[in-house]
Simulated scan of single mutants.
Amino acid sequence: MIPIFDAHIHLDQYSDEELHQFFSRDLVTLKGMISVSFNLASCKRNLELSHKYSPLVKCAFGYHPEQTLPSDSEMADLLNWMHRHLDDMTAVGEVGLPYYLRQKNPQLNRDHYAEILEEFIKAAVLWDKPIVLHAVYDDAPFVCDLLEKHNISRAHFHWFKGDPVTTERMARNGYYVSITPDVLYEREIQKLAASYPIQQLMVETDGPWPFEGPFTGQMTHSIMIHQSLSAIAEVKQLTIESVYSLIYKNSLRFYSVSESCYEQQKKDL
Rank of each mutant, 00 (worst) to 15 (best):
M1T: 14
I4W: 07
A7T: 15
A7Y: 05
L11K: 04
L11D: 03
E17K: 14
H20N: 13
S24R: 11
D26P: 09
L27S: 10
L30W: 08
G32H: 01
M33Q: 06
M33F: 07
S35R: 04
S35P: 08
F38E: 11
F38G: 00
L40D: 02
A41C: 03
E48M: 12
L49Y: 02
L49V: 09
H51V: 11
L56I: 13
K58G: 00
F61I: 08
Y63Q: 03
E66F: 01
T68Y: 00
P70N: 03
D72W: 00
E74I: 10
M82W: 03
M82S: 03
R84T: 10
A91D: 10
V95K: 02
P98V: 04
Y99S: 02
Y99V: 07
Y100F: 15
Y100N: 06
K104G: 15
K104Q: 14
N105Y: 11
Q107N: 11
Q107V: 10
N109E: 15
N109T: 10
R110F: 08
D111M: 12
A114D: 08
I116M: 13
I121T: 09
I121D: 02
K122S: 13
W127N: 11
D128E: 14
D128S: 14
D128Q: 15
P130V: 10
I131M: 05
V132H: 03
L133P: 03
Y137A: 07
D138V: 12
P141E: 07
V143I: 12
C144K: 00
L146F: 04
I152F: 00
I152M: 15
R154M: 13
A155Y: 00
H156I: 10
F160P: 02
F160R: 04
K161R: 15
K161T: 10
K161Y: 11
G162Q: 07
T166L: 05
A171W: 06
Y176W: 09
P181T: 01
P181N: 04
D182M: 01
R187T: 13
Q190V: 08
K191R: 12
L192R: 01
I198Y: 02
M202D: 09
D206G: 11
P214C: 06
F215V: 04
M219K: 01
H221E: 07
S222I: 04
S222H: 05
I223N: 09
L229I: 14
A233V: 08
A233H: 06
E241N: 13
S242R: 14
Y244I: 06
S245Y: 08
S245D: 15
I247S: 01
N250L: 12
S251M: 08
S256G: 07
S256I: 00
V257S: 00
C261L: 15
Q264K: 15
Q265D: 14
K266G: 14
